[in-house]
Amino acid sequence: MSNIGLIIEERAADIGNFLVGRLLPFRQKRAVGPFVFIDHMGPADLKNYQNLDVPAHPHIGLSTLTYLFEGSIMHRDSLGTEMEITPGAVNWMTAGKGVVHSERTPQYLRHSDKRLHGLQIWVALPKDLENLDPSFIHIEAKDIPHWEEGSTKIKLIAGEAFGKRSPVPVYSKLYFLEIIASEDTTLNIGNDLFGESALYILEGEIEDGGNTYGPKQILIAKDAKLCQFKMLAGTTVYIFGGEPFPEERYIFWNFVSSDKETIEKAKQDWVAQRFPKVPNETDFVPLPQSNVK
């Protein structure tokens, strides 16, 4: 019997000059554990005159996790960080009370044909940490825990699972796993997960309860635990989740908070340009006109 309670299809969303696939939030499922936002970037083939350019924009109340499959992004922020992220590494930026950053194609690639593919993820902070000082950490691909079990390769990108812990400094109980199957494989991992659980299919197919599911779908577990399912050969999935927070999280644009007034203040501060600046950058993304979700 299937343990899948909800299927979320990837939906197109425009983030400026780049089209992404929006996975979370969804009207019937605003969050999975502390995960409140997931964008699937690409795969996009960019010509020598096309580049990713997301100018300076603010965040509060969350940590961002950038994970690339292909390509490269240059991250710059108001802490003075300048870091290129490449496939398999993790950029983990905690906004807390407020941070500003930009994401662009690195200078050395701006006049070359290039490919970009990855995930952008937001993880909400616990209520008592929503206003902590911002920070940034980069974890190299070689430092992400990875191992093999039979015909599957597993990476623990963030959080804890299977008795292992990622070096990404998370602030609540969560997990974010990559599993790649080189052969048809049946997995039973219910005892290794906790809280709410979901599975995103990047490529390939999985079978569960007599049904087959393919790429660009998130499968939400009914009882907060993914149990037994079959991965077909050549399939890559990402399993994520954790303990949900007791309070609702509100999202407006790039702001996440358990308090609507905090979001209103952040909106006013961005319009008045009271947020810290990214060094040597003057352009920025204006505040969109919309209501708090």
Rank of each mutant, 00 (worst) to 15 (best):
G33W: 11
F255S: 10
I85Q: 02
T66Y: 06
D133E: 12
A89E: 06
E248I: 14
Q28G: 06
E247L: 15
E264Y: 00
R165L: 01
V90P: 02
F136K: 02
V278E: 02
G241N: 13
D113W: 15
R274A: 09
Y213I: 14
F245E: 02
I73R: 08
I201S: 08
D223N: 15
V170K: 00
L116Y: 13
L177Q: 08
L219H: 11
H75C: 09
A95H: 03
L177E: 04
W147P: 06
H111M: 01
I201T: 13
V20P: 00
S257P: 03
I154E: 07
S2K: 15
G16A: 13
L24D: 00
S112I: 05
R22L: 11
E148V: 00
G159Q: 01
I189E: 04
I239K: 11
R249Y: 13
I157P: 00
D53N: 14
D39S: 13
S135K: 14
E148G: 03
T81D: 06
D192T: 01
P215A: 11
E203L: 15
V20F: 11
G150C: 07
L52G: 04
H138Q: 05
F176P: 04
L129K: 15
L226C: 06
E84D: 09
G214A: 13
T282I: 09
S257R: 04
G118I: 02
A12G: 09
I201L: 12
S166K: 09
G242T: 09
F69G: 00
D223F: 14
L6F: 13
V90H: 05
G163S: 02
V123T: 08
I137A: 04
D133A: 12
S63G: 14
G210W: 14
D143M: 10
